[in-house]
């Protein structure tokens, strides 16, 4: 299996070149780098700071200000459970509990050790008509129940198994 590290780092270099190492483009740079790594690794942020000639602290400040940026690596499947008002009244909490139990995750530990699953709650996904909602990567699953959640999880696991056997 070829790892994709160099490809990613090459992308960082490209992004920096594209923005001519302009500190005013910091947000755009972070955004593009995050697309590549799925999160913002510390060492890469320090590298960006060096390239832009600003302090790593300011890069960290910006990266933590926007909830869009994430500083921790995420799993291959990011599962978001909506806990907005509509979902909450329709018992989204039960679904969250099931997922936490199945995946061995909690509010503290959000990503499984094998880096396959990340479990998050979000405030409102704006899909209240489908409440309660679970989103896997960018796929929306509406009107969820405990049972449907377990089914969904099993499907993903099956898919993973097949990919690995290939």
């Amino acid at each position: 299996m070829r790892n994709d590290f160099p490809v990613k780092f090459d992308r960082v270099c490209e992004v920096l070149d594209k923005h001519k190492c302009d500190p005013n483009k910091l947000i755009a740079i972070l955004q593009e780098v995050q697309e590549e790594y799925k999160y913002l690794p510390e060492d890469i942020m320090t590298y960006i700071a060096t390239a832009l000639g600003i302090s790593p602290g300011s890069v960290f400040g910006v990266a933590t200000f926007y909830s869009h940026f994430t500083l921790e690596p995420k799993g291959k499947y990011v599962i978001k459970v909506c806990d907005g008002t509509a979902c909450h009244v329709r018992k989204s909490e039960e679904i969250l509990k099931v997922l936490e139990k199945e995946l061995g995750l909690s509010g503290r530990k959000k990503t499984s050790d094998d880096m396959i699953f990340t479990l998050e709650t979000v405030a409102c996904l704006g899909a209240c008509g489908l409440a309660p909602v679970v989103v896997v990567n960018d796929e929306v699953h509406g009107s969820m129940t405990k049972e449907k959640t377990i089914e969904l999880l099993n499907r993903i696991r099956e898919q993973e198994k097949q990919e690995n056997n290939k």
Partner: peptide
């Protein structure tokens, strides 16, 4: 620039880069 604001809202804090100790940064 060893210190800067990070996070926001009620979580806002003044920190060093990556929350390291001030003796470990610039």
């Amino acid at each position: 620039g060893a210190l800067d604001f990070a996070y926001r809202g009620a979580q806002a804090k003044v920190v060093t880069s990556f929350n390291k100790g001030i003796g470990e940064v610039e």
